[in-house]
């Protein structure tokens, strides 16, 4: 009798669990839909022909498949060239930024550097200062060295640890190096390795997950950066987001249509296919690196203090 009651209670609890899980799934899926809505909307709109867009009865399903807009946008964006510029630019910046931040993080974690407190406070201050404040004087500075219009204007700050969100990367590196046992370093030093060698051969290999984290976030950051890049390097530098920023005028230059010709007029169809092409490399990158992105933040320990 008692065991039967227990069984009943158990199955009741089980049923309750299933119901709760169903609610959770419902919530997760509906939120997921809200997340993806702009993308779906964008994909579908970019597949619609201009007539479909004007036709109010067509909401979601295009009447016929027409991909000519992607071809047009491909050439307006000068896609292959822009893609290469984007990749080279963000890889250089991300690489240099990661190196400089790792050095700084190692210095703070391992050495009795004087004024450590001050540097920590400055890291936070640097993070908080809005980039708008720094852009104008940086412009004046680079202008006096004739570096405006050269990608160096973005690369140099990255190489010297003052790039996008550098402070966060420094703090992440610091925590990761501080959590490595010091005895490895000391053992290597006893074997006659110099400090730089210890850093390169012992500390860095142990921090590979953190390095990956910094590189990918920094890559995405520089890939998406337009505010400073357009100011310091110029909006014609030609990274994909910059091309997207000036897409409207680029499009009109390439397809100067008479007003009567509806087919080539700039509309959402072109805007969205351009946007899709611009985010496509990021999406692919994310699909391959999703684990590193999501796990990275959790394990990085930016979560405290």
């Amino acid at each position: 009798m008692a065991s039967k009651n227990l069984l009943l209670a158990k199955s009741k609890a089980h049923g309750k669990n299933i119901a709760i899980n169903a609610v959770f799934y419902f919530l997760l899926i509906s939120i997921g839909f809200v997340y993806l809505y702009p993308l779906l909307y964008m994909i579908i709109t970019s597949l619609m022909t201009t007539e479909d867009l004007i036709n109010p009865t067509i909401m979601w399903v295009p009447t016929r498949l027409d991909l000519s807009n992607f071809e047009m946008v491909w050439s307006v964006l000068e896609y292959p060239k822009s893609l290469v510029i984007s990749i080279v630019f963000s890889v250089i910046c991300a690489g240099l930024q990661t190196i400089s931040c790792a050095l700084m993080g190692y210095a703070l974690a391992r050495f009795p550097v004087p004024l450590k407190r001050l540097w920590m406070v400055l890291l936070i201050v640097v993070f908080i200062i809005p980039s708008d404040v720094l852009t104008i004087p940086r412009y004046v500075l680079f202008n006096s060295y004739n570096l405006i219009g050269s990608p160096l204007a973005m690369i140099l700050p990255a190489a010297l640890g003052q790039g996008l969100k550098s402070s966060i990367f420094v703090l992440i590196f610091m925590q990761s190096f501080a959590s490595c046992p010091k005895s490895f370093d000391e053992a290597a030093q006893l074997d006659g390795a110099g400090r730089l060698r210890v850093f390169a051969k012992i500390a860095l290999p142990m921090a590979v997950p953190v390095i990956v984290l910094c590189v990918i976030f920094s890559l995405v950051g520089y890939w998406n950066e337009t505010a400073q890049t357009s100011m310091l390097v110029g909006s014609d530098f030609g990274t994909l987001p910059l091309q997207l920023q000036s897409f409207d005028s680029l499009f009109k230059n390439e397809f100067p249509t008479s007003f009567g010709d509806e087919a080539n007029r700039l509309n959402e169809r072109y805007q969205f296919s351009a946007t899709l092409l611009v985010i496509a490399p990021l999406v692919i990158f994310y699909l391959f690196m999703q684990k590193q992105f999501v796990k990275g933040i959790e394990s990085a320990g930016i979560t405290g203090e």
């Binding site: 890939w223 505010a227 987001p241 946007t275 990021l282």
Partner: peptide, 11 residues
């Protein structure tokens, strides 16, 4: 990953 100024303003 995909949020950037131009993308957001297009959207």
């Amino acid at each position: 990953i995909i949020i950037s100024g131009p993308v957001m303003s297009k959207l």
